Amino acid sequence: MTEYKLVVVGAGGVGKSALTIQLIQNHFVDEYDPTIEDSYRKQVVIDGETCLLDILDTAGQEEYSAMRDQYMRTGEGFLCVFAINNTKSFEDIHHYREQIKRVKDSEDVPMVLVGNKCDLPSRTVDTKQAQDLARSYGIPFIETSAKTRQGVDDAFYTLVREIRKHKEKMSKDGKKKKKKSKTKCVIM
């Protein structure tokens, strides 16, 4: 069974824990209790493949930012979460993405942009803004509501699919490099 290491990042209060708990335990946590770091595991079937999701729910508070490099190193894919009623959390996505790329030393890291709290009427981040940002990053965008469960499975499952595509691409690139290195030079 394939294991996928997913990391949920975003500013404090955007609903990272609520999304994760909704996926794992099928219930909505409405009281806000700032996370330092929590880890969850769940076995699911995605596109006919049974897999184990190892999900790291991270601290959004700035005082825990020193811990970010460590979990970013171990993560295979990242859910970059903002709240649709919090423009600052949307603007912060850029910083999370840049930090992930720096730590992973790669421009090509599996990510999904997630606009959470889409059940709320007080939207300050337009869907088109988020779609445009995701398009500019070359990553999928999904709106979710941890409260109603809308888009929750889709967000995590899409990230797994992005990781699969990335692994497939990397193995193809690896095979191309191996083929090239088999060419021999004969000096007579």
Score class of each variant (00 low, 15 high):
residue 81 V to L: 15
residue 33 D to S: 00
residue 110 P to I: 03
residue 70 Q to P: 02
residue 104 K to F: 13
residue 175 K to H: 10
residue 113 L to G: 01
residue 151 G to L: 14
residue 4 Y to C: 13
residue 111 M to R: 01
residue 5 K to G: 02
residue 83 A to F: 03
residue 180 K to N: 12
residue 10 G to D: 01
residue 55 I to N: 15
residue 48 G to S: 05
residue 117 K to A: 13
residue 10 G to W: 01
residue 72 M to D: 01
residue 21 I to Y: 15
residue 114 V to D: 00
residue 162 E to A: 06
residue 84 I to G: 15
residue 55 I to V: 13
residue 75 G to R: 02
residue 104 K to L: 08
residue 24 I to T: 04
residue 120 L to P: 15
residue 91 E to S: 14
residue 162 E to N: 13
residue 40 Y to A: 00
residue 24 I to H: 00
residue 135 R to P: 03
residue 96 Y to S: 04
residue 103 V to A: 13
residue 75 G to Y: 10
residue 187 I to C: 12
residue 108 D to I: 05
residue 187 I to V: 08
residue 91 E to G: 03
residue 33 D to I: 00
residue 37 E to L: 02
residue 25 Q to I: 15
residue 154 D to P: 05
residue 180 K to S: 09
residue 101 K to E: 14
residue 84 I to R: 12
residue 21 I to G: 05
residue 47 D to P: 03
residue 149 R to K: 09
residue 53 L to G: 09
residue 181 S to L: 12
residue 52 L to E: 03
residue 51 C to L: 09
residue 169 K to T: 13
residue 112 V to M: 13
residue 121 P to L: 10
residue 7 V to W: 04
residue 131 Q to W: 09
residue 64 Y to N: 05
residue 2 T to F: 05
residue 17 S to N: 00
residue 95 H to C: 09
residue 44 V to H: 04
residue 40 Y to P: 00
residue 49 E to G: 07
residue 18 A to R: 01
residue 86 N to F: 01
residue 2 T to A: 09
residue 165 K to Q: 05
residue 126 D to Y: 09
residue 167 K to P: 06
residue 156 F to R: 10
residue 131 Q to M: 11
residue 54 D to A: 00
residue 33 D to T: 00
residue 162 E to F: 04
residue 115 G to Y: 12
residue 33 D to W: 01
residue 68 R to H: 06
residue 121 P to T: 12
residue 49 E to V: 08
residue 121 P to I: 12
residue 168 E to G: 12
residue 54 D to E: 10
residue 82 F to T: 11
residue 186 V to E: 06
residue 34 P to F: 10
residue 16 K to V: 15
residue 176 K to T: 09
residue 63 E to Y: 02
residue 62 E to R: 02
residue 158 T to S: 07
residue 24 I to Q: 09
residue 83 A to Q: 13
residue 63 E to H: 04
residue 76 E to K: 12
residue 36 I to V: 06
residue 51 C to G: 04
residue 43 Q to S: 09
residue 91 E to R: 10
residue 165 K to Y: 14
residue 142 I to K: 02
residue 134 A to S: 09
residue 11 A to S: 06
residue 64 Y to E: 10
residue 111 M to P: 01
residue 65 S to C: 04
residue 112 V to S: 00
residue 159 L to T: 08
residue 143 E to V: 01
residue 132 D to V: 05
residue 181 S to G: 05
residue 36 I to H: 00
residue 98 E to I: 00
residue 116 N to K: 00
residue 62 E to F: 03
residue 67 M to T: 03
residue 111 M to V: 09
residue 156 F to V: 15
residue 183 T to L: 08
residue 127 T to R: 06
residue 156 F to I: 15
residue 118 C to G: 10
residue 125 V to L: 07
residue 39 S to R: 01
residue 158 T to I: 14
residue 100 I to E: 00
residue 121 P to C: 09
residue 185 C to F: 13
residue 168 E to S: 09
residue 74 T to G: 12
residue 98 E to S: 05
residue 153 D to A: 10
residue 42 K to I: 04
residue 7 V to C: 03
residue 97 R to W: 14
residue 67 M to D: 03
residue 124 T to H: 09
residue 44 V to Q: 05
residue 95 H to G: 10
residue 67 M to I: 12
residue 65 S to M: 03
residue 42 K to Y: 02
residue 92 D to I: 02
residue 124 T to D: 13
residue 26 N to S: 10
residue 43 Q to D: 03
residue 36 I to E: 00
residue 47 D to C: 03
residue 157 Y to T: 13
residue 183 T to R: 09
residue 5 K to W: 06
residue 107 E to S: 11
residue 6 L to Y: 04
residue 6 L to H: 01
residue 182 K to Y: 14
residue 49 E to T: 09
residue 166 H to K: 13
residue 67 M to L: 10
residue 72 M to R: 01
residue 150 Q to W: 03
residue 151 G to I: 10
residue 104 K to A: 14
residue 186 V to K: 02
residue 38 D to S: 00
residue 163 I to F: 08
residue 153 D to M: 09
residue 129 Q to C: 12
residue 103 V to P: 06
residue 177 K to Q: 12
residue 112 V to H: 00
residue 94 H to R: 13
residue 14 V to W: 15
residue 41 R to D: 00
residue 59 A to F: 03
residue 22 Q to L: 02
residue 105 D to M: 15
residue 14 V to F: 10
residue 184 K to E: 10
residue 32 Y to L: 04
residue 66 A to Y: 08
residue 177 K to T: 09
residue 66 A to M: 10
residue 100 I to K: 00
residue 64 Y to K: 10
residue 39 S to P: 01
residue 11 A to C: 12
residue 102 R to M: 08
residue 36 I to N: 00
residue 66 A to D: 13
residue 53 L to R: 00
residue 105 D to C: 09
residue 64 Y to W: 08
residue 106 S to N: 10
residue 96 Y to V: 13
residue 61 Q to A: 02
residue 80 C to M: 13
residue 14 V to M: 10
residue 98 E to W: 00
residue 46 I to S: 07
residue 57 D to P: 00
residue 122 S to L: 09
residue 157 Y to S: 12
residue 48 G to L: 03
residue 142 I to A: 15
residue 175 K to Y: 11
residue 50 T to D: 05
residue 21 I to P: 00
residue 38 D to V: 00
residue 163 I to T: 08
residue 102 R to T: 08
residue 129 Q to G: 13
residue 85 N to I: 13
residue 188 M to L: 07
residue 17 S to R: 00
residue 32 Y to E: 00
residue 82 F to E: 11
residue 39 S to I: 02
residue 135 R to L: 10
residue 37 E to A: 03
residue 17 S to V: 02
residue 133 L to K: 04
residue 113 L to F: 10
residue 31 E to Y: 05
residue 24 I to L: 09
residue 139 I to N: 11
residue 59 A to R: 01
residue 164 R to K: 15
residue 122 S to W: 07
residue 29 V to I: 07
residue 106 S to W: 10
residue 165 K to G: 09
residue 164 R to P: 15
residue 98 E to C: 02
residue 79 L to V: 13
residue 142 I to S: 10
residue 113 L to I: 10
residue 116 N to M: 15
residue 95 H to R: 12
residue 50 T to R: 09
residue 93 I to C: 12
residue 156 F to H: 13
residue 67 M to K: 03
residue 63 E to R: 01
residue 154 D to M: 06
residue 62 E to T: 05
residue 12 G to V: 01
residue 178 K to T: 12
residue 27 H to S: 09
residue 137 Y to W: 08
residue 45 V to I: 03
residue 35 T to M: 15
residue 96 Y to G: 01
residue 109 V to T: 11
residue 27 H to R: 11
residue 90 F to A: 14
residue 97 R to T: 12
residue 25 Q to K: 12
residue 88 K to Q: 12
residue 10 G to C: 10
residue 109 V to P: 04
residue 56 L to W: 09
residue 42 K to D: 02
residue 14 V to P: 00
residue 170 M to H: 08
residue 169 K to F: 15
residue 33 D to Q: 01
residue 81 V to R: 01
residue 139 I to V: 07
residue 136 S to C: 07
residue 88 K to R: 13
residue 135 R to M: 07
residue 157 Y to M: 09
residue 3 E to V: 04
residue 126 D to L: 07
residue 19 L to S: 15
residue 178 K to W: 06
residue 176 K to D: 13
residue 131 Q to K: 07
residue 101 K to P: 01
residue 57 D to W: 00
residue 142 I to H: 04
residue 181 S to R: 10
residue 9 V to L: 15
residue 107 E to M: 14
residue 88 K to E: 14
residue 152 V to K: 13
residue 72 M to T: 08
residue 28 F to P: 01
residue 74 T to Y: 05
residue 101 K to T: 13
residue 136 S to G: 10
residue 63 E to C: 02
residue 48 G to T: 05
residue 81 V to T: 09
